[in-house]
């Protein structure tokens, strides 16, 4: 990580330390601060209103947000909606945004006057109720429907983060031709979750390490028990693996790397959650304790944007295609793999 990225990461870390409040399902104050330091549209080109940063920098910032269980649609805005709009040549508005892919029951229509409308249902759209608008990828086009143009039926993931059903009835949409693919949409979503998960794993491991040093049983801190030490070390290892995987996938930016990183991170998340709770005993199993902010997010995020079975299968298909001779070149291929 170079110094500029490190400074940015430190700035975001400080903002989160001051304003993050994982109890809420939406933190407008934190969002405003993040906009102020200019990270909500990091990878969006400058001429479209963003910061023109690369995916690696974006992933590092998401990792910090994950570490603080930040209740903001950062991945959705920066990696998905901002990308869809900018890629189609539109300026990206400020404020929280969200995005979705239109399923088969969503219809995009153009009337005789050239006005577009969108009709149908979008399930589990992150933070839809708080977003300024939703960008919908609908077969070669991007449709942007601003807030108020759709109805929201509130839903939530395991952590209570908004995952809403969006109902569109002849919703007026701004429509642009798009070269974005559903595959790329899913990969960017997966990359965002992998980075957030790495951060949440850091937090869960950090809490377990701290607790093990404080909690006394049998006259000594838990940290002195070797069985507990082995748990902590395993969590630290899995966390490191998820972190390097997310960074490497963001830097490579290839479909294979992202698939491998999301599969590996989703698998690691299960291990980290299990051990974090084991080390915390009953207190970690309560709603009083902060551990749940991270473990419930990890349990949700490992299944969002494709779990390890989905991405594992994708990696496996590439591996089987590659065969005996091609497997190693597949694994070692860098950014052009």
């Amino acid at each position: 990580m170079n110094d500029i990225v490190q400074d940015l990461v430190d700035t975001v870390d400080a903002v989160c330390a001051r304003h993050a409040d994982p109890e809420r399902d939406w933190n407008p104050r934190l969002w405003d601060e993040l906009e102020r330091v200019g990270v909500t549209l990091l990878p969006v080109p400058e001429e479209r209103g963003g910061a023109g940063a690369d995916l690696a920098t974006t992933a590092e910032v998401l990792r910090v947000l994950g570490r603080h269980a930040a209740a903001v649609p950062a991945a959705e805005t920066a990696l998905l909606a901002g990308w869809l709009l900018a890629e189609a040549g539109a300026d990206v508005p400020s404020g929280p945004l969200t995005a979705a892919v239109a399923g088969p029951d969503v219809a995009l229509r153009e009337d005789a006057g050239g006005a577009w409308t969108l009709t149908g249902t979008l399930p589990r759209v992150p933070w839809a109720r708080h977003a300024e608008g939703v960008a919908v990828l609908a077969g070669g086009r991007v449709a942007f429907v601003p807030r108020g143009g759709y109805e929201v039926e509130e839903g939530a993931n395991l952590a209570g983060e908004p995952r809403d059903t969006v109902r569109l009835q002849d919703a007026a949409a701004r429509v642009l031709a798009s070269a974005a693919t559903e595959k790329a949409f899913r990969e960017r979503g997966a990359l965002g979750r992998a980075a957030l998960m790495a951060g949440a794993m850091e937090a869960a491991t950090g809490l377990a390490v701290r607790y093990a040093g404080e909690r006394v049983q049998f006259g000594r801190p838990l940290a002195r028990f070797q069985a507990v030490q082995q748990h902590l070390a395993e969590m630290a290892g899995e966390t490191l693996l998820a972190t390097v995987a997310a960074q490497a996938a963001a830097a490579d930016g290839t479909g294979f790397a992202v698939a491998a990183a999301k599969a590996a991170a989703s698998e690691a998340a299960g291990t980290v959650c299990r051990l974090a709770h084991q080390v915390h005993g009953a207190i970690g199993f309560t709603d009083e304790h902060g551990l749940r902010h991270f473990t419930t997010r990890l349990w949700a995020w490992r299944d969002e944007c494709g779990n390890e079975a989905e991405w594992g299968e994708a990696v496996g298909a590439r591996a089987v295609d590659a065969g005996t001779e091609g497997l190693w070149p597949l694994i070692t291929a860098g950014a052009d793999g």
Partner: peptide
Amino acid sequence: RTRIGLLVARLWALRR
């Protein structure tokens, strides 16, 4: 595919 893919994914991460 899922079984072998999970191994390859983890190996990729471990190598990095």
